[in-house]
Design a protein around this nucleic acid. Structure first.
Lengths: 201, 201
DNA sequence: CGACGAAGTGGAACGTGTTCCTATTTTAGA
DNA sequence: TCTAAAATAGGAACACGTTCCACTTCGTCG
């Protein structure tokens, strides 16, 4: 299932291996939280995870794979946490904005971590496609659920297209923010404007 | 005018300096065209431009600055070339799509170069804000001109917002393409979908 | 013209991502 | 339980972005 890719959790047989993988991702998040992209140094991750450098590379074939996998895990957790909470807002646009703002706020509360993960995401090439795709699916599902909170299966082709466009804007806004070109307020506004343009009920 | 930034053309006094700068950017484009981001190695650029490594760093304080400056020059040329051509299309959406497709096609005809420049753009941080902003302005002006081909000054706040959203989608699509996650056809489609969602006359 | 500072040259050196190699430990199958 | 294969440890080595230094050349002002 994984070619030149990161070892996914399902690929790992023993508990020790799952634990190693977890330690590595924990170390990655910790270092990223503290110092951002540059602080996630492979030697430092290996040492902190109590793992040899070669082992780190056996689990994640590059720094980018490592960070995107960390992003994936974090995003899955966010999505699960969000799944339970009721979605506020009367109109579709309001609900989508609410979900996005909540997520964005979460990311902005740990700027260094977000910078590291976003940078990796933007730099990832085709060899990271699987992980990237997973993240994209999660985002789309978060957005379409916000559009149809009742769980109706009315998700049309156009809804998915809209979700994708919103995802694109969200990504651009995030990049603008992590690279210091936009303020947090501008980032939120940029997303809100896009949603309101796309979802005028 | 330039702090820790690239030396802009206007900052350069002598003709020899303008020529050095041009040689450096030419070398950058040539190497990028041939081998993409990874092939733009600072030693190689310096050698090809017939300039010492230290001089290269005096003109452009990092590889990212160098590539974004190259992007800026290329984009300015594209914009000038496009300025003369008449814009086809009856509806606003058609015209915008026409302009974007033309530009995208141009970039896709030199995939390696586009990969190098896009990667740099996505990786650029606040210290490259000036160059980035310039590129953003160019794109917005291209788009609003496509919306109002007559040159009327009817550009509203909403038009600018729409142009920005389209720019975001364009960037995301481009990133997806250069990183090998989307085909050229999918990239075009992604942009077209966004434009039609945003500009339903 | 002569001197002085700025700009350029050539190259050594450093940091970090990545690769590779050998020895040791763990795991799985007979 | 014993053994072969796989996984891990530990660390040297390499590549490329970046910095730095000593020296030379260029341009300007007295």
């Amino acid at each position: 299932m994984s070619s030149a890719n990161s070892l996914a959790v399902e690929d790992l047989g023993s508990a020790a291996q799952r634990d190693r993988r977890k330690r590595i991702l924990d170390a990655t998040i910790a270092l990223a939280s503290q110092g951002g992209f540059d602080a996630v140094q492979m030697r430092a991750v290996a040492e902190r995870a109590d793992v040899a450098l070669g082992t780190l590379y056996r689990y994640f074939p590059s720094k980018i794979h490592l960070l995107v996998s960390a992003l994936q895990r974090e995003f899955e957790r966010t999505e699960v946490a969000l799944r339970d909470k009721p979605i506020e807002g009367d109109t579709t646009a309001d609900r989508v904005i609410s979900v996005l703002k909540r997520t964005t706020r979460g990311m902005q509360s740990d700027a260094k971590l977000t910078e590291a993960l976003t940078r990796a995401f933007m730099f990832a090439d085709a060899s990271v496609a699987a992980e990237i795709h997973q993240v994209g699916m999660l985002l789309t599902s978060m957005l379409t659920r916000a559009m149809y909170p009742e769980g109706r299966d009315e998700v049309t082709e156009e809804d998915v297209q809209i979700a994708r466009v919103i995802g694109d804007v969200w990504l651009s806004a995030l990049v603008g923010w992590v690279t210091g070109r936009n303020s947090a307020a501008e980032t939120g506004q940029q997303i809100e404007v896009a949603v309101r343009l796309l979802l005028r009920d």
